Every structure is written in C-alpha cells, then in structure tokens.
Amino acid sequence: MATDKNGFEIPDQMRDFAEKSVDQARKAFDDFMDVTQKAVSTAEGSATAMQTGATDVNRKALSFAEEHVDAAFKFAQDIVKAKDIESMMKLQQDYLRQQMESLGEQARDISETATKAAQDAAESSKP
C-alpha cells in the first residue's frame, strides 16, 4: 500500500481497480476512434474544393481531440500510480501546462488550415 506522510493510504486493490478501469475506458475510446475515422473516410468520398478544406479541418480537429484524450489517459494512469499527494499535484500541474501549450498550438494550426481552405475554395470558384 502507498502511504504519504499524512497517513493517506491508497489500497493496492483500489489502484488495480482504477488502473483496469482506465485501461477499459482507453480500449472503448480506441474502438470509438476507429469507427469514427472509418466514418470520416467514407464521408470524404465525394469531396469538392470546400469539402476538401473542411475535411482537412475535420481531420485536424479529430486528431487534436485524440491527442487530448491520449494525454488525459496518460495523466489518469500517472495519477493512479502516484505515491503521494505532492506527486499528484505535480502531475496535475504538468498536465495542465502541457494542455494549455498544446491548445495554443492547435488553435493556430486550425486557424491556418481553415484560412487556407477558404482561400482555396475562393480560388476554385473564380471563372
């Protein structure tokens, strides 16, 4: 059992249960992502210039969502394995900092992709 200096104990069975729950949720999410990606691929069959741009944005958004869920699962797994409250707080601080950095980069990337898609659509509609 893990014990911190305040006497807080996390039983091994609780850790095992939490870890199995995270693994099961991860598998369910991976299955969902597989089905979603297949659906997105099927919908792309009849793309025009605007649809192609929208597809690029959708793919990026889907990829970014998957990255965030991956990070959340990794965070959950790390928290389950944490030995004490201090390490939990450090993990949370690091996770939040990384997510904020990632969100900023992804927002810029989506904005650039959407702008390019609109420009491409406008170019393709010119006579």
Rank of each mutant, 00 (worst) to 15 (best):
S125A: 15
A122C: 09
A122N: 10
M100R: 10
Q24H: 07
G53S: 08
T36F: 15
D4Y: 07
I79C: 01
D109G: 03
T48L: 13
E9H: 05
I79Y: 02
F32Y: 13
T3I: 08
Q99E: 07
T115H: 07
F8N: 12
D31G: 14
N58S: 11
A76E: 03
G53Q: 06
K116E: 07
V80P: 02
Q24C: 00
R97K: 11
E86T: 04
D109R: 08
E86F: 05
E44R: 14
T3E: 08
A114H: 06
A2R: 09
D56V: 06
S46N: 15
D70R: 12
Q119T: 12
A18P: 02
S87G: 03
D78Y: 01
S87Y: 03
K38W: 08
A82E: 00
V57K: 05
D120L: 08
E44M: 14
D16S: 08
D12R: 01
S63L: 10
E105W: 01
A18I: 04
T55P: 00
A122S: 13
Q24K: 05
M50K: 15
A49T: 15
K83A: 02
T113K: 05
D30Q: 12
P127D: 05
A76W: 05
D56F: 05
S21Y: 06
L62S: 12
A25F: 05
T36Q: 15
K38A: 15
S41C: 04
H68Q: 14
K5D: 05
A76H: 04
K60A: 11
F29N: 06
S87I: 04
A47M: 15
S41Q: 14
A39I: 13
F29E: 02
E44H: 11
S125E: 15
D120C: 04
I110D: 02
D30C: 02
Q13Y: 07
T3A: 06
E44A: 14
A25I: 07
A28E: 14
Q13V: 08
S21K: 07
R26G: 09
A54W: 10
E112V: 03
Q51K: 14
D70L: 10
A43V: 11
T48P: 08
S87C: 00
D16P: 00
G104P: 06
Q24Y: 08
V22R: 09
N58E: 12
K74Q: 05
S46F: 14
A43F: 11
A82C: 05
Q13L: 07
K126W: 13
A72L: 09
V40K: 10
K83T: 00
A43I: 12
Q92N: 10
M33K: 15
D12L: 06
A61M: 13
D78A: 04
I85F: 05
M50C: 13
A43M: 13
V69R: 08
E123S: 14
A2P: 00
E105F: 04
T52F: 06
I79R: 03
N6G: 01
D78G: 01
D30A: 10
D16W: 01
F8W: 09
R97W: 01
Q13H: 07
